[in-house]
């Protein structure tokens, strides 16, 4: 039996693979057949997740795939790994519990725009500011897919939905700006129609030591067809990458880039190093245990009780 990790520094995250283990294949990684509509953008995100696991030689028992509720949030059922399909909006809080108590696991969170920015908005803010080490991919389709076409917090003004038959009237959220303002340490943007770029962003996010956030445009062909054509060169749009001159540590510059009108830019907007919550907690633990070296847990408690006698 392995020694159970209590909480230890984040360094334990990369686990050397046993020599005989071959990288997992798509066949081994595929679980349930996805329930998404044919042509849904979410398929490409899933395919690239499989590719990432294969390429980076991650192992099924060392990853957890976590989501909330929504079409995009069905994700964990389609992946042959430990996974959790949590409740609507709260996936990041759940994932934080996994990440903080098990720094040896890779934690990936997939969710929709409603899941992450409406009902889960508060958790998004606080997971980002706490810099919890995990990768969060917002599969943004500008609409509520699962519940069949209601306005989402990212729906552009004028979008006609079942809850705004005359067109959306509430000003939309810009996920990249939101992430920057919340204090995320890695913020990137990509789109399902550019698989190579999605893969680049996922790899960079995974390697980031902290909270890594990717907004991935993912078209809902059922309820918002053509939403992202302007970002797809094959459909007459333009795919502009973040200019090479952009300084990813410059928050204000990142914000300005993110403020460009659609289709805007794609790539890494912001990336800085700040201690993760896990690392901070590990420091507190190390400091607390320094004075208690050699004592068993029951003896530590005994010492406390002696002061209460």
């Amino acid at each position: 039996m392995d020694k159970p990790p209590v909480l230890s520094p984040d360094a334990s995250r990369t686990v050397p693979a046993a020599p005989e283990r071959k990288p997992l294949t798509k066949k081994e990684l595929a679980a349930d057949h996805p329930t998404w509509c044919p042509g849904c953008g979410d398929f490409s995100v899933l395919a690239l997740y499989f590719k990432l696991i294969e390429k980076r030689r991650l192992w099924q028992e060392k990853i957890t795939t976590i989501s909330g509720i929504g079409c995009s949030s069905r994700f964990p059922y389609f992946v042959q790994s430990y996974g959790a399909h949590y409740i609507h909006g709260r996936s990041l809080a759940f994932a934080s519990g996994v990440a903080l108590s098990r720094p040896d696991l890779h934690v990936f969170v997939f969710g929709g725009d409603g899941d992450l920015f409406s009902i889960g908005g508060n958790h998004f803010t606080h997971t980002a500011r706490k810099n919890i080490k995990l990768t969060c991919v917002a599969m943004d389709n500008w609409v509520y897919g699962l519940t069949k076409k209601q306005t989402s917090p990212t729906s552009p003004l004028g979008f006609k939905s079942k809850t705004d038959v005359w067109g959306a009237v509430d000003y939309p959220i810009n996920p990249v700006k939101q992430a920057l303002a919340a204090g995320a340490t890695f913020v990137a943007r990509t789109t399902h129609s550019n698989p190579n770029h999605v893969m680049q962003m996922m790899e960079a996010a995974m390697d980031h030591d902290g909270f890594s956030f990717i907004e991935c445009l993912s078209e809902c062909v059922e309820f918002y067809e053509g939403a992202f054509d302007a970002a797809n060169p094959r459909k007459g749009g333009v795919f502009n990458t973040v200019p090479a001159t952009h300084d990813v540590t410059n928050e204000v510059a990142a914000y300005k880039l993110a403020d460009e009108p659609f289709p805007g830019y794609f790539g890494i907007f912001y990336q800085v190093q700040r201690p993760t919550k896990g690392a901070r907690e590990a420091e507190l633990i190390a400091a607390a245990r320094e004075k208690l070296k050699g004592l068993k847990d029951w003896q530590i408690l005994q010492k406390t009780f002696e002061k209460m006698q």
Binding site: Y86, F94, S96, G97, A99, L100
Partner: peptide, 12 residues
């Protein structure tokens, strides 16, 4: 968030 985090840690 609190119960969700606890659920996550318990799950883990």
């Amino acid at each position: 968030a609190a119960i969700s985090m606890a659920n996550g840690a318990s799950f883990a």
